Simulated assay, not measured.
Amino acid sequence: MRAVPSWALVPSGCAPVVLVAGWTTAAVLEGPSYDAARQTISVLAAHGAAGFWVMTGALLALGVCHLGTAWALRPAATAGRVALAAGGVAAFAVVLVPAPSSGGALRHGAVAATGFVVLALWPVLAAAGPAAPWGLRPAPCLAATAVMGLGALWFLVETNRHGAPGLAERAVTCVQSLWPFVVVVSCLYHQRTNGTT
């Protein structure tokens, strides 16, 4: 089994940090008019938003993190690595096709949905078998994909009922940005305990 380089901790660990720091800072810049529970992250990255550059920078950094992690996760199945990289590219695409300040747009929604889908599927596509590191075994991979899929469904329900889509989106994107780090840590632990480099 090919080894994961220790530098993979940097992009995988930075992904959730830059995402949460980005939306937190952008929301503070936007002020009390922004409702994090009811409004999506995309509103913060819309042209004209006070924190536009902060959220845009965070999304670009997230894309770079996913691409770096996909490159480093050599023990993962190729389809999973490609899906994770596609999630990184989707983050770039979200920046290129921003939502209007009202928070809705068909083109932006399609790009964001594509990102949700590929990032929800990458764990199960990355599964490498029962002897693989814990984060690449079939059961944890399937569970991660199920949790992300349920989170995306929750987001759709909240959006359609005009409830709290911002809260649902933050929950699912937190899981999607944190899971690569969990996989990298499990791979590095597996390598250490099995004496592989």
Rank of each mutant, 00 (worst) to 15 (best):
W71G: 11
W71F: 13
A72K: 07
A72E: 13
A72P: 08
A72D: 14
A72T: 15
L73P: 01
R74L: 03
P75M: 13
A76K: 04
A77W: 08
A77Q: 13
T78S: 12
G80L: 09
G80Q: 06
R81I: 05
A83N: 05
A85R: 00
A86H: 07
A86F: 07
A86K: 02
G87F: 02
V89C: 13
A90N: 09
A91W: 09
A93I: 01
V94P: 09
V95M: 06
V95F: 03
V95P: 06
V95S: 08
L96P: 04
L96W: 03
V97D: 09
V97S: 08
V97Y: 10
A99Y: 02
A99V: 01
P100V: 03
S101I: 05
G103P: 08
G104V: 00
A105R: 03
L106T: 14
L106S: 12
H108V: 08
G109I: 06
G109M: 08
A110P: 04
A110Q: 10
V111F: 06
V111G: 11
A113S: 08
G115A: 15
G115R: 03
G115T: 05
F116E: 11
V117D: 09
V117E: 10
V117N: 12
L119H: 12
L119W: 11
A120C: 14
L121Y: 15
L121K: 07
L121R: 06
W122V: 10
P123G: 13
V124H: 02
V124G: 01
L125H: 12
A126S: 11
A127R: 08
G129E: 01
G129L: 01
P130R: 02
A131N: 02
A131G: 10
A131V: 00
A132N: 04
A132G: 05
A132Q: 04
A132D: 02
W134K: 07
W134I: 01
G135I: 00
G135D: 05
R137T: 00
R137P: 02
R137I: 00
P138E: 14
A139R: 15
P140T: 01
C141Y: 10
L142Q: 13
A143W: 12
V147Y: 04
M148R: 10
M148H: 09
G149D: 07
G149F: 04
A152F: 05
A152C: 04
A152V: 10
A152P: 00
A152K: 00
L153C: 09
L153N: 09
L153T: 15
W154P: 00
F155E: 11
L156T: 12
L156M: 10
V157K: 15
V157M: 09
E158Q: 08
T159H: 07
T159M: 12
T159L: 14
R161Q: 14
G163Q: 10
G163P: 06
G163I: 01
G163A: 12
P165D: 03
G166P: 13
G166I: 00
G166H: 09
G166V: 01
G166T: 03
L167W: 13
